[in-house]
């Protein structure tokens, strides 16, 4: 198990390989469809300091607002990453993001982006909403809550020992590609049976 702490250096990001299991600690930012579209189209600066050397988490959380106005995460598993495929590589490069957490993996454009900038794709367990919320120790701030709604807002959060697996690395490795190819052969055999 590899302990990973944000901010993550390019060297550390490049040292990670497909199959590595990591426990991530530090500040990360949730961002999904509306956020990625905004980051590519308008390149906003408000999120820059939070993303430099940091991590984007594809997640639309369930959030509780306390009586004192503070927020806490109630359920916070990963969402499907492939929807961000058109944007991800540009976002990684623009904001010097060192890791993206999601589920399902991403395609060739992101794979090239990971290689170019020096970053990894981390897979969290989809559906483990309650468990992962326990790893979120604090909500620092939120952007675009009113405009985008709770699931789509940028939540800047602190996590402790968030368990993930490296499934795409900066060397062109992708577990998703491997499984897709392996299972394609089996599917063909089964269909011909």
């Amino acid at each position: 198990m590899i302990k990973l702490q944000t901010p993550i250096s390019e060297e550390t990001a490049r040292s990670l390989k497909v199959g590595d299991e990591v426990l991530l600690t530090g500040t990360i930012v949730t961002a999904r469809d509306a956020a990625h579209k905004l980051m590519v189209e308008e390149r906003p600066d408000f999120i820059r300091e939070h993303l430099n050397g940091s991590v984007i988490y594809h997640c639309g959380p369930v959030v509780r607002k306390g009586t004192d106005g503070s927020y806490s995460f109630v359920a916070a598993g990963p969402t499907t990453s492939s929807r961000e495929e058109p944007y991800q590589a540009d976002v990684i490069e623009e904001y010097k993001v060192r890791a993206v957490i999601g589920k399902g993996g991403m395609g060739p454009k992101t794979a090239d982006g990971l290689k170019k900038t020096g970053a990894v794709y981390l897979h969290a367990v989809g559906g483990a909403g309650s468990l992962i919320a326990k790893k979120v120790t604090k909500v620092d701030t939120v952007y675009k809550l009113e405009e985008f709604g709770t699931p789509e807002a940028f939540w800047v959060i602190q996590v402790e020992d968030f368990p993930c697996v490296v499934t795409m690395d900066s060397h062109g490795g992708s577990l998703h590609k491997d499984i897709m190819e392996m299972s394609a052969g089996i599917a063909k055999e089964l269909m011909d049976k």
Binding site: V62, V125, G129, L131, K134, P163
Partner: peptide, 23 residues
Amino acid sequence: NVFGTIVENIELAREASTPLCQD
């Protein structure tokens, strides 16, 4: 490991009465 995490999450969600999945 994934199934282990899933089982842990199922138990936690039931006990804490929080959503199994955020979606």
